Simulated scan of single mutants.
Amino acid sequence: MNSIEFDILLPAFIAGLLVLATHIPFGMRVLQRGVIFADLAVAQIAGLGVVIAGLLDLTEHPLLVQLIAASSALCGAALLAWIERRLPEVKEACIGLTFVLSATLGILLMSHDVHAGEHLKDLLVGQILWVSNSQLIATAVLTAALLAIWKLLRQSLGNFGFYALFAIAITASVQLVGVYLVFASLIVPALATHRHLKRRYLFAFTVGIAGYAAGLLFSVWLDLPTGAAIVWALMLCGGGMLFAPKQH
């Protein structure tokens, strides 16, 4: 690996670690609550906010883009909290439908944009190889704040409190790594370690870190799309952990 590749891969790997720091505990809670599609729905709604900001020609104003994306995600969080409270027996169906509606609305909004295909691809698979130092610093500060709130208040968070923290975390990560990798980062480590009650966090972070590292390396060595390569690397690492001897 030459120095140029290392200079590209190191920020991408750091971005992955920041995503995992919040997404592993949130992913475990998502599995516990039985709202698997919630992350996809919130990620897509946050992405919809980014699309709207682009249509308003605000891409040169990153703070406004973040504000619109976060506002969209918080609206999505409020909707999901309402669904879980009012329609618990069909919440997964409603959350899945919310994802589909927000995804197709994004397509409709971009239908007259000649670069729509490129923008849609960036939204779904991300551009993790091109994260900037300013993005990493802002995400690190946000991650530290979210983890502090989670540690102090997680036992007392209601439905909306959980979904609001969840939405803010996803708003940042979906712009770093894309919708697909957000979903994989939330679900794969949590699912792979659901049988390992002892040292579960250690095993989950091992899966996540190994998946990001392997995916980044293989994407460079084999000239593969990075986001998709990391998703598959996470799945392979998670599969190995899932079928490992059970820890009590």
Results as ranks from 00 to 15, higher is better:
104 T>I: 12
176 L>C: 12
79 L>M: 12
187 I>H: 05
172 A>P: 00
96 G>S: 12
115 H>A: 07
38 A>T: 06
176 L>I: 14
83 I>F: 09
2 N>Y: 01
101 L>R: 03
64 L>F: 12
137 I>A: 14
218 F>V: 15
17 L>Y: 11
155 Q>A: 06
34 G>Y: 10
12 A>V: 10
175 Q>G: 13
164 A>T: 04
134 S>P: 04
107 I>T: 04
145 A>S: 10
212 Y>A: 14
194 H>C: 09
59 T>Y: 03
244 A>F: 15
23 H>N: 08
103 A>E: 04
95 I>S: 04
89 E>A: 14
76 G>S: 10
196 H>I: 07
204 A>P: 08
89 E>F: 12
141 V>F: 15
223 D>F: 13
164 A>Q: 03
90 V>P: 00
10 L>F: 12
211 G>F: 11
102 S>C: 02
70 A>M: 14
244 A>N: 11
37 F>G: 14
101 L>S: 10
45 I>R: 05
227 G>C: 08
202 L>V: 15
176 L>S: 04
91 K>Y: 03
160 F>Q: 02
146 L>K: 03
26 F>V: 05
21 A>T: 06
189 P>T: 10
154 R>Q: 13
33 R>P: 03
217 L>S: 12
43 A>E: 06
11 P>H: 06
174 V>P: 02
7 D>A: 13
46 A>D: 02
212 Y>P: 07
65 V>E: 00
97 L>C: 06
176 L>P: 03
117 G>W: 01
110 M>V: 01
195 R>N: 13
162 F>Q: 03
121 K>L: 13
196 H>F: 08
140 A>C: 09
148 A>M: 05
172 A>Q: 14
136 L>K: 04
214 A>C: 14
167 A>Y: 03
236 L>E: 09
112 H>K: 02
51 V>L: 02
34 G>V: 04
237 C>Q: 09
194 H>V: 15
148 A>Y: 03
29 R>W: 06
245 P>I: 10
178 G>W: 00
111 S>K: 03
21 A>F: 07
214 A>I: 13
87 L>P: 01
242 L>C: 08
61 H>P: 01
230 I>N: 11
200 R>N: 08
133 N>W: 15
64 L>S: 08
137 I>S: 11
45 I>D: 00
195 R>T: 06
131 V>I: 13
19 V>I: 14
57 D>I: 02
43 A>C: 07
15 A>Q: 06
230 I>W: 07
82 W>E: 06
95 I>C: 03
98 T>L: 14
184 A>D: 10
189 P>D: 08
234 L>M: 13
47 G>H: 01
244 A>Y: 15
173 S>L: 05
205 F>T: 11
212 Y>K: 10
140 A>T: 11
174 V>K: 00
59 T>Q: 09
210 A>S: 15
243 F>A: 13
222 L>W: 15
238 G>P: 08
239 G>V: 13
98 T>P: 00
215 G>A: 13
198 K>G: 11
165 L>S: 01
96 G>F: 05
108 L>K: 04
103 A>W: 05
235 M>E: 09
179 V>C: 10
28 M>C: 07
35 V>C: 02
76 G>P: 01
13 F>K: 11
39 D>T: 13
78 A>E: 02
146 L>S: 05
88 P>C: 10
124 L>K: 06
74 L>G: 01
171 T>K: 10
1 M>N: 07
42 V>A: 02
32 Q>N: 09
